[in-house]
Amino acid sequence: MSIIYVLIPIAILFVAIGLCIFFWAVRTKQFDDLEKEGFSILFDEDNKPAAKHPVKESTKPNDH
């Protein structure tokens, strides 16, 4: 049973990492709106008529 001396600290490490991620998520406001994000997966990034505009979507991050 001496394996628990190794396994439990490892488990605690994972818990600590999990908590850190949760804190980060709260800090970056990921819990502010729980409704919209659930929908985002349903929407396609590009639609046929949107083909006129896709440049704006993809180049945006380079703008600044």
Binding site: L42, F43, D44, N47, P49, A50, A51, K52, H53
Partner: peptide, 8 residues
């Protein structure tokens, strides 16, 4: 909405 390709 349709013109902008947002019909989803």
């Amino acid at each position: 909405i349709f013109e902008n390709g947002l019909s989803d």
